[in-house]
Design a protein around this nucleic acid. Structure first.
Length: 462
RNA sequence: GGUGGAGUGGCCGAGUGGCUAGGCAGCGGCCUGCAAAGCCGUAGACACGGGUUCGAAUCCCGUCUCCACCUCCA
């Protein structure tokens, strides 16, 4: 399969470092505030990558970190009047609930920055020894990465420090504005619990270093892929790469960056107040619809969010779901059983081409349409049905047609009441009392049911 | 100022030299008592100006516009 590499700015044939295995590190959230649609999209993209690689026979090790100590966590916690660790943990749990609700598979491991302090300190020590870091000249206890000591600085985003817009020079103890903190000395107004002893005094890790520490600790000096949001390219990933390599590690062989989500053509931001949070999104649509919607743009493109677009995704998913219901009704159970799940070649080609999910969805729809035309031809239908199921499985679209699981009491009540109404409607139709028949149908539709007349009589579903 | 990405029909979104993706919305037909669902058919586009070519959404040159990043960000 081919993937677009940010560093080389081109599609690269993916060659795992270890045949049959793929190692992926994805920048997870800084658990400072509630997850929004952008976080979900990002996580879903790497979930799809992982599922696809698994389908292709690779054993995938996916590490997605949690950055649970950082400036914004401290300031948000202080503003909320809660301990920073309580805020971080609450938000972390909120992220995981949202991931679960979307059917995003748990990563192989999910390390926390606070659990990696030893490794972080070891890296900083290495950087100091090798002359790529320095202790701040003031009494702050900070340690900075010395960008001027690393000739390749800027290699990821193809920038030269001299041509960048000048940064904040007022920062304490830095030699040049481009230098960034590896270790931040403890400040008297910060909680003691947010600091750890170190050779440079009590303090906490800077932002960036935790990813260098966690990726190389769990995946080794060299690993296959590093992923994250487009907005992390600089400074986060640029700095991370510089640190990792300057400390003597190789880092990832390929960098992936996913596009952002816009709302009304504007980037989501706190200052604009247009963020779409996971909690409200999960209340607006079911998991398959959200997965479909979030996959409707190629992962490197900006995805525009609006309720209308979400509605379109819902219609598309409904179409697929309708097909499954019909096909399962038309097929013998053993024909519908999916033994070997094999996706169509065009689907595979789309996924292999830099994770072309929109094209893959097109292939899916083509099969659904074909299948709808085969409802009278079971042998052909069975094959199409199995293809569709295979594609849905790879995409993580869990459209279990007939309501699995134990029926709840409301459902039991509907199961006994709806057929009575449908029977009354049928009697009215036979008596040509269409006003009454349509009235009964309108009642059911208003209650949220779908009524479908078929040669075998009326069928209903929620 | 620097770095990167992108402009395709009413909307979203594929397509990288010839063979009109797909979805939603629209229109016509089939089916239906009427609908819904489904199927079939159909219209509509390549930011602009040049150039290369038998042929350009696709390649080249120029112009315009938009987006992201340049030390808070998925």
């Amino acid at each position: 399969m081919r993937l677009f590499d940010t560093k080389r700015q081109s599609l690269q044939e993916f060659q795992p470092l270890h045949p049959g295995h793929a190692s992926i590190y994805v920048c997870g959230p800084t658990v400072q505030s509630a997850p929004h649609i952008g976080h979900l999209r990002s996580a879903l993209i790497y979930d799809l990558l992982r599922r696809w690689m698994t389908y292709r026979g690779l054993e995938v090790t996916l590490v997605r970190n949690v950055t649970d100590i950082e400036d914004r966590i401290l300031s948000n916690a202080e503003a909320a009047g809660v301990p920073w660790w309580a805020l971080a943990y609450r938000v972390e749990r909120e992220f995981n609930r949202a991931y679960d609700a979307l059917g995003i598979l748990p990563p192989t491991y999910e390390p926390r920055a606070t659990g990696t302090i030893e490794r972080i300190q070891m890296l900083i020590e290495l950087l100091l020894e090798r002359g790529h870091a320095y202790r701040a000249e003031d009494e702050s206890g900070d340690v900075y990465f010395d960008t001027s000591s690393w000739p390749d600085y800027g290699e990821l985003t193809h920038q030269r420090p001299s041509e960048m817009a000048p940064g904040d020079t007022a920062d304490r103890g830095k030699r040049t504005p481009a230098d960034f903190a590896l270790w931040k000395g403890h400040k008297p107004d910060e909680p003691d619990s947010a600091s750890w002893p170190s050779p440079w005094g009590r303090g906490r890790p800077g932002w960036h270093i935790e990813c260098s520490a966690m990726s190389t600790l769990y995946l080794g000096s060299r690993f296959d892929i590093h992923g994250g949001g487009l907005d992390l390219r600089f400074p986060h990933h640029e700095n991370e790469l510089a640190q990792t390599r300057a400390a003597g590690y190789d880092g990832p062989q390929l960098w992936m960056h996913n596009g952002l989500v816009s709302v009304s053509g504007q980037k989501m931001s706190k200052s604009l107040g247009n963020s779409v949070f996971a909690s409200e999104l999960l209340g607006r649509a079911d998991a398959p619809t959200l997965r479909y919607f979030l996959g409707s743009a190629q992962y490197r493109s900006t995805l525009e969010y609006s309720p209308e677009l979400l509605g379109e995704a819902e219609a598309a998913v409904g179409r697929i779901r309708n097909f499954l219901v019909r096909a399962e009704a038309a097929l013998a159970p053993e024909a519908a059983a999916v033994a070997e799940e094999q996706v169509p070649e065009e689907f595979a080609a789309a996924m292999d081409d830099d994770l072309g999910v929109p094209q893959a969805l097109a292939v899916l729809h083509e099969h659904v349409r074909r299948g709808n035309g085969q409802l009278g031809a079971p042998s052909e239908l069975a094959e199409t049905y199995r293809s569709v199921r295979a594609m849905l499985a790879v995409l993580g679209l869990d459209l279990a047609a007939s309501g699995q699981g134990a029926p709840d009491r409301a459902r039991t009540a509907l199961d006994s009441l709806v057929p009575v109404l449908l029977q009354q409607r049928q009697q009215a139709r036979e008596a040509h009392d269409f006003a009454r028949a349509d009235g009964l149908r309108a009642l059911l539709v208003q209650a949220g049911l779908e009524i479908e007349d078929t040669p075998q009589g009326a069928k209903w579903r929620l």
